[in-house]
Design a protein around this nucleic acid. Structure first.
Lengths: 134, 134, 134, 134
DNA sequence: GTGGTCTAGACCACA
DNA sequence: GTGGTCTAGACCACT
């Protein structure tokens, strides 16, 4: 696929969304990993620098990073920084299929409650896939 | 396999989204109106039945309905029920896209943590779409 | 086995241990679950009451509970309380064995660094098993 | 299978214990002295080699050694190394038990989260003990 | 009254 | 400089 964009790592918060800041940060880190803007071993912005960037309290950033660490998505080294972890969840093919089915069903149900069709979902995911492609 | 039914109105809550339950309900009603799944005069589920359905406190549903009424989107008839009023909901393509984007990103993030790629997700959804017919 | 003790749920902190308060709380909840003083569905002390009990800040208790929730050990319901989760990690027999082996090896290595022998470990675990037995 | 070697001195760190690295090092040296695995005149690993071994910053090792020296437990000879001094370490049974208890509880807690019972742990350790000879 | 989020600010541990 | 812990206190969401 063609290299459309070399998106930098850029966080932003939407205070009106009702989504807590720390969850927005978590989500954006996960998204960055999902579309390869962040990969194993990459360092995240420091707690303090991201806090300044986003104009929020360092504790809030720390909380997001902490939760990411508990989930095994990042690892931190005191005094050094926070890095994307290299750990991957290992599942059997059957378990993988089960997880995928359950996740997808719940995604579709939710989307359906908002009036979206499966086609719209697929179109949107394809768009994301193209934009975020490596 | 998909179990995505063709009911016109179906609420669902995502406790992990960080969006308050009552806001999720409000948004789903608004989207349904914008989609014509709900039109003027349609009755909403009763507070109690929806509360049971969603396994939340009736106060939470009441709060959502109350806010919808304040905005003029529904009207409550004491002892009868809650009905869609004649106010038009205009959701721009942008607003719709925002909702879709948030949902999709959260889906992708979760999927990532299990090692799925966007391509796998799309394939699976397409499969569901074929099997389930829409 | 005979019912030696009906231990109540009682938390305590050791400020001198160097172990952060919130980790001590987490550990004590886990221990209580491990020896059945807490089982599925049981409610934990409220954040505020435990904070008063332990004479620490409610945020510190909340942090412990939050981490327990992320790990799937407890679930919280806003406005209601925090409860022992019924979720169990499901593993195949092979995975179980692998996990057990890895955990045990690391436990023994650590114990060995402190000069303990396997026999001492076994003796101590047996003692814990007797005391905490249901 | 056990890979528990018979080396007299082996350091290990548990980053998740919440106990600072330098304190873990100090405690392990003390326990080794109390156990006679280290006696007067024995040389400790050099700061650099231990730092490499444990994959931590040499400053951290230096800090541990420094504190041990302040307490009179080791003496440093510039350019030569760090040696056990003649000071006796008296660890009471209670202190030893405390260390053992903390380690064991943390082991059990983790094991619990994977659904293992204390009995299974004991069985497995006994197996290791037999296989590996002690 | 329950838990959840966020801030401000202090102090510690580590590099 | 890095992240980690804790407090005090405010305000919100939900029962």
């Amino acid at each position: 696929m063609t290299e459309i964009s070399l998106q930098r790592l850029e966080f932003s918060l939407d205070p009106k969304s009702g989504v807590p800041f720390y969850k927005q940060v978590i989500l954006q880190v996960e998204m960055a990993i999902a579309d390869q803007r962040l990969t194993q071993g990459d360092q995240l912005p420091t707690v303090r620098s991201l806090a300044v960037d986003l104009r929020i309290n360092p504790n809030t950033v720390a909380r997001a990073y902490n939760e990411l660490e508990i989930r095994g998505i990042v690892t931190t080294q005191q005094g050094t920084g926070t890095f994307i972890s290299d750990k991957q969840i290992e599942l059997t093919a059957v378990q993988r299929e089960e997880v995928l089915a359950e996740m997808s069903k719940s995604f579709i149900s939710k989307a359906y409650s908002y009036g979206f069709t499966i086609e719209e979902l697929i179109d949107y995911l394809e768009e994301l896939g193209r934009d975020g492609g490596q």
